[in-house]
């Protein structure tokens, strides 16, 4: 399948090979970073980015209602690129702006991304720092899921997260502008089933990630913890706690 080597002009590699190999010892194939990965990510993610756009419109409407200008709402979408935290931030918005509450809440809601980034590490450790950390700016729930799927299918296209992230970013910013301009005239995203896109993508991924009985114990730990934590705690702590509970269960099993 991988019959061409991807090149990236910005990266001088001592081996003369354009692909990157980290100093790792496990001898696995290198992870590439080039246009094919960007393109694959972009094309795979466009249909899902339409779902993201449903939320972008909703965010734009909310931002407009609390008094943010179109430019300010677009700026937030372009620089923060994290839907749930942005929607909560504009819900907290007031005059004067509760800066500390907004920034701390944003951090808490987005802490789950650390776990998602950690899950990419087996592949991303083989990329240069600028490529890995640059790509992570564009990481959202949806394109993280698609990227994990692509890596686990045996593809080693390091630019997939970037490509799929560019699709998300473009739709997210554009739909924010649409929502902020349109104000209240646009209906509820649930009317078009857009609110189900994230759940559908994650369900499809779960169907693929299932590895039989060995998945059962960590998944049950994650499910139980997440459902209870979602009831008991604000924000998105439940995602982080569910992931950590599964990791603890797996470590205990590993030690036995």
């Amino acid at each position: 399948m991988e019959n061409e080597t991807e090149t990236n002009a910005s990266d001088g590699n001592a081996t003369g090979d354009a692909t990157e190999i980290s100093g790792s010892t496990d001898g696995a194939e290198p992870v590439t970073f080039g246009w094919r990965g960007v393109r694959a990510g972009l094309l795979t993610c466009v249909p899902i980015a339409f779902g993201v756009a449903g939320y972008g419109v909703a965010f734009g409407v909310l931002a407009n209602q609390v008094g943010l200008s179109v430019a300010e709402a677009a700026l937030m979408s372009a620089l923060v690129v994290a839907g749930a935290s942005q929607i909560v931030a504009v819900e907290l918005w007031a005059d004067p702006i509760p800066i500390a509450a907004i920034v701390v809440t944003t951090f808490a809601i987005n802490l789950r991304y650390s776990l998602m980034g950690a899950a990419l590490q087996p592949w991303f450790k083989r990329l240069s720092a600028s490529k890995a950390y640059g790509s992570l700016f564009f990481m959202a729930d949806e394109n993280w899921a698609l990227t994990m799927r692509d890596f686990r299918a045996g593809n080693r296209r390091g630019a997939f997260l970037l490509g799929s992230g560019i699709a998300i970013w473009t739709f997210w910013v554009a739909s924010t502008v649409v929502g902020a301009l349109a104000g209240e005239t646009i209906g509820d995203p649930a009317e078009y089933g857009v609110d189900f896109v994230l759940a559908a993508v994650f369900l499809a991924l779960a169907a693929e990630l299932w590895e039989g009985r060995s998945s059962l114990a960590p998944w049950m730990a994650s499910l139980g913890t997440a459902v209870i934590a979602a009831e008991a705690l604000p924000g998105r702590w439940y995602i982080l706690l569910g992931g950590l509970a599964a990791a603890v269960v797996e470590v205990i099993r590993h030690d036995r």
Binding site: A119, L203, A206, A226, Y238, G242, A245, A247
Partner: peptide, 18 residues
């Protein structure tokens, strides 16, 4: 070992409450 279960566990943690 802990990292290997993370992708599935995060997916389930997002889905469960939803």
């Amino acid at each position: 070992a802990a990292l290997s279960v993370l992708p599935g566990a995060i997916v389930i943690a997002v889905l469960g409450p939803e």
